[in-house]
Simulated scan of single mutants.
Amino acid sequence: MTRGSRLVPVLAWLLAVGATTGFIAPPDDGAHKVVAGRQAAVEVPPSKSPTLGFVPEQGGLWRLEIPHDAGGDVRTVRGRSDPPREAGRTVSVRVLVEVGLGIDGQEFARQVMATLNDERGWGHDGSIVFARTDGEADVDVTLASPATTDALCAPVATGGRVSCGRVGFAVLNAERWAHGAEPFLEAGGTVAEYRRYLVSHEVGHVLGQAHVRCPVPGAPAPVMLQQTLGLDGCLPNGWPALGG
């Protein structure tokens, strides 16, 4: 048997694993959601394959190459978690991902919830805490390709570059999740820190927070400053508790 012929069954097995046990399951009955303005959830089972090798430091991505248009098939990441502590209000969160991004949905969901429930997050004052659900929720957090982000955020103009938060849902641009944003990185931030900012900022909009300016050059940026576009002399920051 030649080397090439030995690779054929291996490649076929890998493709089968990716299709059936990767971060997202293929439709088993044709039921899926193609974006038409606002997504409706279809469940995504948890990832069961260690062979595909997502990297937590990459936000759960298997690869950093993000397609401009992944097709608009948006699905819920299956799973639930209780709030980690008591607070004045519990906000339920449903996490969704677009098929074709090359991300482990469970790891993405874990990072989203870890950010939201961090002691430096929106609940730092004890006012709110977040619980994850795969049913109807107060807040949907969706990771989407640039083109799908534009469709979901409309009429907000995201231009394939930025993300959005609106009443009931936040859409995170997967290009930004993978690579961060130049102004943030040039000011000394890291991509991991930018991901915390991205979640906090867009969910902040869902919670009713508006954009603000840099109050004092050299201070940590308020999380509602548009740090994707520029920091105006402030320092990169992804935590509501640290930026004033």
Rank of each mutant, 00 (worst) to 15 (best):
T2E: 04
R3A: 14
R3T: 13
R3H: 08
S5K: 12
S5T: 14
R6M: 11
V8F: 01
V8I: 14
P9I: 10
P9T: 13
L14F: 09
A16M: 05
G18K: 03
A19T: 13
T21D: 09
G22V: 05
I24Q: 14
P26V: 12
P27T: 12
K33N: 14
V34L: 13
V35Y: 01
V35W: 01
G37Q: 10
Q39G: 06
A41C: 14
E43M: 07
P46S: 15
S47Q: 14
K48M: 07
P56K: 14
P56Y: 01
Q58R: 15
Q58I: 00
G59Q: 03
G60Y: 01
G60A: 02
L64M: 06
L64A: 14
L64H: 07
E65R: 15
A70H: 10
G71T: 07
G71Y: 04
G72S: 02
V74P: 08
T76C: 13
V77W: 03
G79S: 05
G79M: 01
R80W: 00
D82E: 15
P84G: 04
R89Y: 00
R89S: 09
T90N: 03
S92A: 07
V93Q: 03
L96I: 01
E98S: 12
E98V: 08
E98P: 12
V99Y: 09
L101Y: 07
A109G: 06
Q111R: 15
M113N: 08
A114H: 10
A114I: 00
T115K: 05
L116C: 12
N117G: 07
R120F: 00
R120Q: 07
W122M: 06
W122S: 04
W122A: 09
G123M: 03
H124R: 11
S127E: 09
V129K: 09
V129A: 14
F130T: 09
F130M: 10
F130H: 09
A131Q: 10
E136G: 13
V139T: 14
V141P: 04
T142D: 02
A144K: 07
A147Y: 02
T149Q: 10
D150V: 08
L152W: 00
A154W: 13
V156A: 11
A157Q: 14
T158I: 00
T158A: 01
T158C: 10
S163G: 13
C164V: 12
G165H: 11
G165D: 09
L172N: 10
A174C: 05
E175M: 12
R176S: 14
P183V: 02
F184Q: 05
L185R: 12
G188W: 01
T190N: 07
V191K: 09
E193R: 14
R195M: 03
V199K: 03
S200D: 06
H201L: 03
V203P: 03
G204E: 02
H205P: 12
V206R: 08
L207M: 11
A210H: 11
A210P: 09
A210N: 13
A210I: 02
V212I: 11
V212G: 07
R213I: 02
P215T: 06
V216M: 01
G218D: 01
P220M: 01
A221N: 06
A221W: 01
M224I: 03
M224S: 11
L225R: 13
L225D: 09
Q227Y: 00
G230C: 12
G230L: 06
C234D: 03
L235T: 11
N237Y: 04
G238D: 02
A241H: 06
L242Q: 15
G243S: 08
